[in-house]
């Protein structure tokens, strides 16, 4: 009897683990991002539920892997035609808000995988992937948007080209966040 209870528990643990991991594997940027391990763990840890993004019919979906050409050229990364063609237009992206050691009002970083940035000891040689998007909030407001763990779906106007951010990073891709997303994030909601 004892053994079978133990066994059932083991199976349950294995199933949950398998689900956690398969979801982590399918999506940092997958089709069903709601299944990400981080999203689930964060929803367990915090009372932040995913709320539907307001519908924006004029937004084009853009994915992180669509930013740069493959293979990488001898003079560095090159923007794809799709990325260039969407500059100035409204796009929709799914990604993770980077955890900032010192959050900054006016922007956050959207990353294809969960990362931290601005560790003082690393002098900005931090773990930010090259494809991160600096998401700007206009007007910047007095305080940073609260950190929202798990995957976010955001919309806004895309801009590209090197730009020095207020924290010293130089961004390549930026998004001017739509006001309704700003409101949702400010209210502690997680737009999905």
């Amino acid at each position: 009897m004892k053994t079978s209870v133990k066994y059932q528990h083991l199976v349950r643990v294995l199933l949950v683990t398998a689900w956690l991991i398969s979801s982590a594997a399918t999506a940092n940027e997958g089709e069903r991002p709601i299944l990400s391990a981080d999203a689930m763990l964060s929803s367990l840890a915090m009372p932040v539920a995913g709320v539907p993004s307001p519908p924006r019919e004029d937004a084009t979906d853009l994915k992180f892997h669509e930013f740069f050409k493959l293979p990488v050229g001898p003079r560095g990364l090159e923007a794809t035609e799709k990325l260039k063609s969407l500059a100035g237009k409204r796009i929709r992206m799914v990604g993770y808000m980077a955890r900032q050691e010192i959050p900054t009002a006016g922007f956050f970083v959207l990353s294809p995988l969960p990362v931290s940035l601005g560790d003082e000891d690393e002098s900005l040689a931090d773990d930010l992937p090259a494809s991160v998007v600096f998401v700007h909030v206009h007007p910047p407001g007095d305080k940073p948007l609260p950190f929202s763990p798990g995957l976010l779906r955001v919309t806004g106007i895309l801009s590209i080209g090197a730009h020095e951010e207020s924290d010293g990073h130089v961004s390549s891709v930026r998004l001017q966040l739509d006001p309704e997303i700003v409101q949702a994030l400010a209210a502690g909601q997680r737009p999905m």
């Binding site: 940092n28 892997h65 990488v72 990604g95 294809p112 992937p129």
Partner: peptide, 8 residues
């Protein structure tokens, strides 16, 4: 995470 196509 330092690789350019990480996460995608």
């Amino acid at each position: 995470s330092q690789q350019p196509f990480v996460g995608a």
